[in-house]
């Protein structure tokens, strides 16, 4: 598989990248959360972002669908630059699905309505079609039988799979994952990772913040390592694990792989 990657890369690079971050900076008060972040993601690529806690991973991916506003630099997603233009923000959000560490399902709605709400409100989809779409994606995450339950009645792993299905319903071009398995009990991690691997194999463009290094090894095209608001290195998994360039990466890998 890794043999094919360079070819695919050259093929795709003729196309416009689907996500471009150029010199992106973001401050919280006086604190620099992101400093001169540059990242280009082509369609179909899987990017895994890792780094110590507080290094700006969440902030970076949250800038991509404008849950955070960047202070300077340029972010272009699916051909639309993120500015204060609300129309472009909505357009970008329609193309970008997001999965959060804490699931963030709508607690007052049953699983079905969690999936259909945005279809009805944003896509203006008729009720029946929305229901069919929802069922299709629930089957894809292997829990069609939970459709009439409330989120609180599901296990963490099931909730996260519902959250993935909810994002997929909108038919996004890119999926963002912010530590999707960090809040899960160990025995539930694999059921969520399996769904994500399946998604990767189907060709979805993915940017995943995760410390699941096995997952990173098997599906990532590139691993992005961040520290103190900067991207320290971007490398394919082999290179990243076997031959890390910076001292900071080495230190991080030592810490995370001894666990």
């Amino acid at each position: 598989m890794s043999k094919q990657e360079p070819d695919m890369n050259t093929n795709k690079s003729e196309q416009e990248p689907i996500v471009i971050l150029e010199h992106v900076c973001k401050n919280f008060g006086g604190f620099k959360a992101l400093t001169d972040v540059n990242l280009t993601v082509h369609e179909g690529k899987k990017i895994v972002v890792c780094g110590p806690s507080g290094s700006g991973k969440s902030t970076m991916i949250r800038c991509i669908n404008r849950l955070e506003e960047h202070d300077s630099g340029r972010i272009v997603v699916a051909g639309k630059e993120l500015t204060h233009e609300l129309k472009d923000i909505d357009a970008v959000r329609c193309e970008v699905g997001m999965v959060f560490q804490s699931f963030n399902l709508f607690p007052h709605l049953k699983v079905l309505d969690n999936l259909t709400l945005a279809l009805k409100l944003v896509r203006k989809m008729p009720k029946l079609e929305a229901r069919e779409t929802a069922m299709r994606y629930l089957e894809r995450v292997h829990i069609p039988d939970q459709v009439d339950k409330y989120p609180s009645q599901l296990s963490g792993g099931q909730q996260q799979r519902v959250a993935i299905a909810r994002a997929l319903c909108m038919n996004p071009k890119i999926m963002l994952f912010d530590e999707p398995t960090s809040a899960l009990d160990p025995e539930m991690i694999s059921e969520v990772l399996d769904v994500m691997v399946g998604l990767a194999q189907d060709g979805m463009t993915m940017i995943c913040v995760t410390h699941e290094m096995g997952f990173a090894r098997s599906i990532a095209d590139y691993i992005v390592f961040m520290d103190q608001g900067e991207i320290v290195e971007i490398n394919p998994p082999m290179e990243f694990f076997e031959n890390p360039k910076s001292e900071r990466t080495k230190l991080f890998l030592k810490q995370i792989l001894t666990h």
Partner: peptide, 23 residues
């Protein structure tokens, strides 16, 4: 109301007024 839940709604493209009404 959990801020994360509202963020999830924003991320799905649900507008501010719709978030207020439905969430």
């Amino acid at each position: 109301v959990d801020k994360g839940v509202l963020e999830a709604a924003s991320a799905l493209g649900i507008s501010k007024s719709q978030r207020f009404i439905y969430i």
